[in-house]
Design a protein around this nucleic acid. Structure first.
Length: 259
DNA sequence: ATGGTAGCGGTGCTA
């Protein structure tokens, strides 16, 4: 079972790269973020031709999340409980797998910048709601995969130049503390588990030659329940896509599980 | 210290 997450930064601008990548990697399930379109603008046909079922929680211009799956959707949950529906940032699905259920959530956690605006408390509140949802989901004691753009740099080793991020919402103590609270519920950070060390970046800004200088950060994460972590066989960051024509500023993170 | 790029949508916001 191959599960991926990719902040696509506008699916309509990225459809060629996205279909090329899917045909190459053939993941079973893909979590997407920042599709930046309402549901009816999502290019479902292009993905259906590649054998994928599609569930979206879209939004005009901003945000928007989706799950693509070769497996049939048994259940779809749109929106994070306790949040309004003005920002589309959470969609979760349940699938039938041998021996029971698999749950997968596609998460687009708020950016939170600037820190002195109301966007920052919105981010922290959103994280608290995600923590509550996750605690309840973990109670089911099933394989659970929380994948997406968390907009959090967990540790200094997750940035090429951590000092550049000191005043940024992505690296504030409260943001990082919220991420640790999530982990301490019993989740495993798949990339950390498979590649402990610096340089595992998933995002390079479009500006100031960040990609050319490898000035990246790790903010796209795949977190696993114990039942999912026990089956984890690999976790990889597919950096190749950042060098493609018209790239997203994020690259895919892919895990493989023995399911 | 500033400005550097990209998507959406048709201007300025978000990142």
């Amino acid at each position: 079972m191959k599960i991926a997450t990719w902040n696509i930064n506008g699916i309509r601008a990225r459809i060629d790269g996205a279909t090329k990548w899917l045909a190459d990697q053939r993941p079973d399930i893909v979590c997407m973020q920042e599709i930046k379109t309402p549901d009816d603008g999502f290019p479902g046909l292009a993905f259906a031709e590649l054998g994928y079922n599609v569930a979206t929680l879209g939004q005009k211009s901003f945000n928007g999340v989706a799950i693509l799956s070769k497996l049939r959707f048994d259940e779809i949950e749109r929106g994070l409980p306790g949040q309004g529906d003005d920002q589309s940032r959470f969609i979760a699905a349940r699938f039938s797998v041998p021996g029971g259920s698999l749950r997968v959530a596609s998460i687009y956690l708020p950016n939170g910048n600037p820190v002195d605006s109301d966007k920052y408390p919105y981010k922290l509140n959103w994280m608290a709601q995600l923590e509550a949802w996750t605690a309840a989901a973990l109670g089911l004691e099933e394989p659970l995969v929380l994948a997406g753009d968390y907009n959090i740099i967990p540790e200094p080793t997750d940035a090429k130049n951590p000092n550049e991020w000191e005043k940024d919402a992505l690296f504030q103590p409260e943001s990082r503390g919220g991420f640790r609270r999530l982990i301490h519920l019993g989740l495993t950070d798949a990339i950390r588990a498979c590649h402990d060390g610096p340089g595992q970046y998933t995002f390079w800004d479009y500006q100031a030659g960040s990609w050319q200088k490898n000035n990246g950060i790790r903010i796209d994460h795949v977190l696993l329940s114990p039942q999912a972590a026990d089956r984890l066989s690999s976790a990889t960051i597919d950096k190749r896509t950042r060098g493609w024509e018209k790239p997203s500023d994020h690259v895919p993170v892919i895990i493989e599980m023995e399911l």
